[in-house]
Amino acid sequence: MADKTFRLEVVSPDSELYSGDATFIVAQTTVGELGILAGHSPLLAELAPGGFVKVTEASGNQTAFAVQGGFLSVTGESITVLAEAAQFASEIDVAAERAVLESAEPGSDDYLHAKSRVRAVEAVS
Rank of each mutant, 00 (worst) to 15 (best):
V124P: 11
Q62I: 07
E46G: 01
V124R: 09
L8A: 02
A2T: 08
E105I: 14
F6V: 11
V31L: 08
Q62S: 13
S15I: 01
A99M: 07
L43D: 08
G76V: 00
A22Q: 01
A120Q: 06
E16F: 02
P106S: 06
S125W: 14
E77Q: 15
E57T: 09
V53A: 12
E97L: 00
G20R: 07
E122Y: 12
K115Y: 00
I25F: 12
L72R: 09
G51Q: 04
D21I: 02
A114G: 04
S12C: 07
V11E: 03
A123M: 05
A83F: 05
V81P: 06
N61S: 15
A99Q: 13
E102H: 02
D110M: 14
L34D: 01
T80P: 05
L34G: 01
A22F: 01
T29S: 10
G70E: 04
E122C: 13
K115V: 00
P106C: 03
S41F: 11
L112Y: 07
P106V: 00
E57I: 05
Q28Y: 08
V10D: 03
D14V: 11
A114S: 06
Q62N: 12
V67K: 01
A48M: 10
D3Q: 05
L101R: 03
Q87I: 04
H113D: 06
L82P: 00
D109S: 09
K115G: 00
V124I: 15
I92M: 10
E16C: 10
F52D: 10
E57M: 14
D93G: 13
A2Q: 09
K54F: 06
A86Y: 03
F24D: 06
T29H: 09
G107F: 03
S108P: 09
F6H: 08
G39M: 04
L112D: 04
V55F: 07
A99D: 13
V11H: 05
K54P: 01
R7G: 02
A95E: 15
V10H: 03
A58T: 02
E57A: 13
S78N: 13
D110A: 15
A64K: 11
V118A: 03
F71L: 14
S116Q: 10
G60V: 08
T23G: 09
L8R: 02
V118C: 04
E33K: 09
L34N: 01
V11R: 04
F52N: 12
S78H: 11
G39D: 10
E84V: 12
L47E: 00
F52W: 08
F24C: 02
H40Q: 11
Q62D: 13
F6W: 12
E77K: 15
V53I: 14
V121R: 11
V118N: 00
G50F: 07
S12F: 02
